Simulated scan of single mutants.
Amino acid sequence: MAMESTLQNGTGAVREDFSEYVAHLQLHMALQARNLVPTLKQTNSDSREQLLHQTQAHFEKLVSRRSL
């Protein structure tokens, strides 16, 4: 019984470490995504920025309509 308890405690620690790693990875990915995607603001001053948003919206529409 003592060995089984030790194994269960070890497995629980590994799961906790893994879930902590996953949470850290999700946070990192969210922060990276924030840096990669331009902010959406309602200014028409920069035509390049407007073209980027239009292209991104068009691409996302194409991908979402694609059948798997």
Rank of each mutant, 00 (worst) to 15 (best):
F18W: 09
S45N: 12
S5C: 12
L62R: 11
Y21G: 04
S19R: 12
H53R: 13
E16M: 06
Q8K: 14
Y21E: 06
S64G: 01
V63F: 01
T55R: 15
V22H: 04
L25S: 01
P38S: 05
G12M: 08
V14P: 07
M29F: 07
K41Q: 08
E16L: 06
E20H: 09
T39F: 10
E16I: 00
H58M: 08
L68A: 11
N9C: 06
A23W: 04
Q54R: 13
S64I: 01
S67R: 12
S45A: 14
S67F: 04
N35G: 11
R65A: 03
Q8A: 03
G10P: 00
T55F: 14
H53W: 15
L51H: 10
L51P: 00
Q8Y: 13
L40I: 13
S64F: 05
A2R: 13
G12L: 08
V63Y: 02
S45P: 01
L51W: 05
S67C: 08
E4V: 12
T43D: 02
F59L: 14
V22K: 07
A33E: 10
P38A: 08
V22I: 13
T55M: 15
L62D: 03
L27P: 03
H28I: 15
L52E: 12
Q42W: 14
T39K: 10
T11S: 02
A57F: 05
L25I: 11
Q8S: 02
V37W: 05
N44T: 14
R48A: 07
Q50G: 00
L51N: 10
E4Y: 09
L7M: 14
T11R: 11
R66E: 08
L27K: 09
V37C: 03
E60H: 08
A33W: 02
R34L: 06
H58L: 15
S19W: 12
Y21S: 13
L52W: 15
A30H: 02
E20N: 14
Q32P: 01
S64A: 07
H53I: 07
L62W: 04
E16R: 11
T11H: 07
Q32G: 03
L40W: 15
R48P: 00
D17F: 09
L40T: 05
E20M: 09
T43P: 01
E49P: 00
Q32H: 09
R48I: 09
L68Q: 08
S67E: 12
H58N: 04
F18M: 06
N9A: 13
E60K: 13
K61P: 00
H58G: 01
R65P: 00
S45G: 12
H24K: 08
